[in-house]
C-alpha cells in the first residue's frame, strides 16, 4: 500500500501456457507478491483484443498487464508477437491522447518463472502507485 492508502487494482491477462503457470508457481513456492493483481487466464496473449484492456481501464482498473510466452515459445507460433504490436498500438493511442500509456504493460513470463512473475507484479504495483489512482477508473461519465 502506498503512503496515502491507495491500493492499485491491476488486471492481468495471463497466458494459459506460461504466465498463469508462473503465477501458480509463485504461489506454490511461496514467493511473496502484492495481492493487487486479478488474473484472467487466456489461451494466448494473442487472444487479448485491446477492447478488453480498454474496458478494464474504463471500469476501474488502475493498470493492465498482458503476459505471454517468450519469443519463439508461443503455443500458437506468433500470437505473442501480434499481441506486442496490438499493445504497442494501444499504448501509442493512449500516449497521443494524454491518457497515461504506462498503465498498460506487456511482459514475457515463462511457466518456470514464478520469481519473474512475482517481481513483475511488484514492479508494476509500485509504478502504478507512483502514477496514482487512474482518473478513468473513477470517472462515471465515460
Amino acid at each position: 500500500m502506498s503512503e496515502n492508502g491507495f491500493e492499485p487494482k491491476i488486471v492481468g491477462f495471463l497466458c494459459n501456457w506460461c504466465a498463469s503457470n508462473a503465477a501458480d508457481l509463485a504461489g506454490t513456492t511461496r514467493i511473496q507478491y502484492p495481492p493487487n493483481i486479478r488474473g484472467i487466464r487466456v489461451m494466448c496473449s494473442g487472444s487479448v483484443d485491446p477492447a478488453y484492456i480498454l474496458k478494464a481501464l474504463l471500469e476501474g482498473a488502475d493498470g493492465v498487464l498482458v503476459a505471454g510466452c517468450h519469443p519463439g515459445d508461443c503455443h500458437y507460433v506468433s500470437g505473442n508477437y501480434k499481441a506486442r504490436r496490438r499493445v504497442t498500438a494501444l499504448r501509442t493511442i493512449l500516449r497521443t491522447l494524454g491518457l497515461e500509456e504506462d498503465r498498460v504493460w506487456m511482459k514475457w513470463i515463462s511457466a518456470s518463472e514464478g520469481k519473474k512473475f512475482a517481481e513483475t507484479v511488484d514492479e508494476m504495483v509500485r509504478s502504478v502507485e507512483a502514477l496514482g489512482p487512474s482518473p478513468m477508473a473513477k470517472c462515471w461519465s465515460l
Binding site: 485491446p50 477492447a51 480498454l54 474504463l58 476501474g60 498500438a89 493511442i93 462515471w140 461519465s141
Partner: peptide
C-alpha cells in the same frame, strides 16, 4: 463509481474504433 452513465461505453467505442 458513485454514478454510471447510461448508455455506457461512449469512450470505449471511440478508443476501440481507434484501436
Amino acid at each position: 463509481k458513485g454514478a454510471y452513465r447510461m448508455l455506457p461505453d461512449t469512450v470505449l467505442f471511440h478508443l476501440g474504433r481507434l484501436n
